[in-house]
């Protein structure tokens, strides 16, 4: 049965379980609230002063201190590193991870699919096998390599090791295999070489896939924790997720309202990217990882 038929059958019987609609609404509302409540607490908390939070009042309505909290966090933070600096570092990291991974993956997938060359299978499998070991597992040896190369506390050291993985390559390979042979033949007939074909046909066709991967990889890069914790110890390259957890440090003198403010600032960019590009992202995610 084709998907069109399935869709037709689906719309042909609207509300066939009409009696239990209220149950669906109740469950989904509960789920929505469970997700939204913690976010609401930090959002509201970020508009109160530290004393209110410290007393444990847990305000659920906005307070008068939002502007000063955000200004204080933005320009000085609590650990000596302004949150603006951390946000910049996270942005650089997330963008470079996303763009870098897409760039190297689309090139290698193109070579593996559209060429026959000695060692092609070896290349494919050595890239493929990186799926097996997440960066967390080989963290210290990777750190040693990065430090031998003198890349500790640099953007390159923070970003490049994160790029070594195969998910994007596999997605592009899968997609390239579906490009009809006629396209390649036509291009050859017109005398277009492989680079021309890549630029004029393959890149435009891959736009949706690139958008989906961008969302997934941006979030992945932004949310890295263990790797930056090891390799980015200087404040010049400290990311916002690490910086925020550091602010909690010793609990007795934590400025909780600034922690909440930083928390909001740290989660806003990736959430915005996911929400704005939701359609591509959901499609891309379910296709990449299966």
């Amino acid at each position: 049965m084709s998907t069109t038929d399935a869709r037709a059958a689906r719309t042909a019987a609207p509300g066939r379980e009409g009696g239990t609609d209220w149950l669906a609404h109740a469950v989904l509302l509960l789920g929505t609230v469970l997700f939204a409540l913690p976010l609401w607490i930090v959002l509201m908390g970020s508009s109160h002063d530290a004393a209110t939070i410290g007393r444990g009042e847990v305000p659920l309505l906005p307070g008068p201190h939002a502007a000063e909290n955000y200004a204080a966090a933005w320009s000085r933070g609590t650990t000596g590193v302004p949150v603006a600096r951390m946000l910049w570092n996270s942005t650089v990291m997330a963008l470079c991870v996303a763009v870098g991974k897409i760039a190297i993956s689309i090139l290698s997938a193109y070579a593996v699919v559209f060429f026959r060359f000695p060692g092609r299978n070896l290349v494919f499998w050595s890239i493929f096998i990186t799926l097996m070991l997440p960066v967390e597992v080989r963290i210290f040896p990777t750190f040693k390599v990065v430090s031998d190369l003198g890349l500790v506390n640099t953007y390159a050291g923070l970003i490049v090791p994160i790029i070594a993985s195969a998910t994007a390559t596999l997605l592009f390979r899968q997609f390239f295999l579906t490009i009809p042979d006629e396209f390649v033949e036509a291009a050859k007939m017109d005398g277009a070489g492989p680079l021309r074909f890549f630029r004029d046909v393959v890149l435009p066709l891959s736009r949706t896939n690139m958008a989906a991967l961008f969302v997934i990889l941006f979030v992945y890069g932004w949310n890295q924790y263990l790797w930056p914790l090891l390799v980015a110890t200087s404040e010049d390259v400290e990311t916002v997720v690490i910086g925020m957890v550091k602010m909690i440090g010793s609990e007795s003198n934590t400025d909780w309202s600034l922690v909440m403010t930083t928390c909001v600032l740290a989660l806003l960019p990736p959430v915005a990217v996911v929400l704005l590009m939701q359609r591509w992202f959901v499609k891309g995610l379910t296709e990449t990882e299966k």
Partner: peptide
Amino acid sequence: LLVWPYAIAPAIAAVLWIFL
């Protein structure tokens, strides 16, 4: 409304739960 928490870092999720 159910998809957005995908974007939350594990460490940030932890901090949100501190406030709970």
